[in-house]
């Protein structure tokens, strides 16, 4: 299968590989996919106020899955939570020129962003509750 130059670039030089401290209050973690399906993405965001200041990923999956998640971390950095939530998989498909059989990779990356944001929001809600209980 021929990969687009952008997919190859992300595969060979993935951006933001790594992990953030998932116990930190400022970090949201999203893990989507399943090993049997050949794709697992973990995407993490570090949030300051309402803005994503850092993002890291780790992905088990094909080159397109790695590229989609690498691109997702690039895109969410500097965005507000709501802006990040509005990133859609079709933008990822376009940017990476993914073929139809690889669209699920972009969907997974979108899901990973949403899961990370939601995880962060849930954390913040819990912290707020605890604080108001005090």
């Amino acid at each position: 299968m021929a990969y687009s130059d952008k997919v190859l670039d992300h595969y060979n030089n993935p951006r933001n590989v790594g992990a953030l401290d998932k116990k930190s209050e400022n970090v949201g973690t999203g893990v989507v996919g399943a090993p049997e399906c050949g794709d697992v993405m973990k995407l993490q965001i570090e949030v300051d106020g309402d803005r994503i200041v850092d993002a890291k990923f780790k992905t088990f999956g094909c080159g397109s899955a790695i590229a989609s998640s690498s691109l997702a971390t690039e895109w969410v950095k500097g965005k507000t939570l709501d802006e990040a939530l509005s990133i859609s998989n079709t933008e990822i498909v376009q940017e990476l020129s993914l073929p139809p059989v690889k669209i699920h990779c972009s969907v997974l990356a979108e899901d990973a962003i949403k899961a990370a944001v939601n995880d962060f929001k849930a954390k913040r809600a819990t912290t707020a509750q605890e604080q108001s209980a005090k």
């Binding site: 590989v17 090993p35 399906c37 794709d39 697992v40 780790k58 992905t59 088990f60 699920h104």
Partner: peptide, 25 residues
């Protein structure tokens, strides 16, 4: 190095079969 599964098993000692995977395709 970029596999979340390797991290889970080798660094965190998680048994992957016990994980409730979300949103598999």
């Amino acid at each position: 190095e970029m596999s979340p599964l390797y991290e889970m098993v080798v660094e965190e000692g998680i048994d992957l079969s016990t994980v409730n995977w979300q949103g598999g395709h």
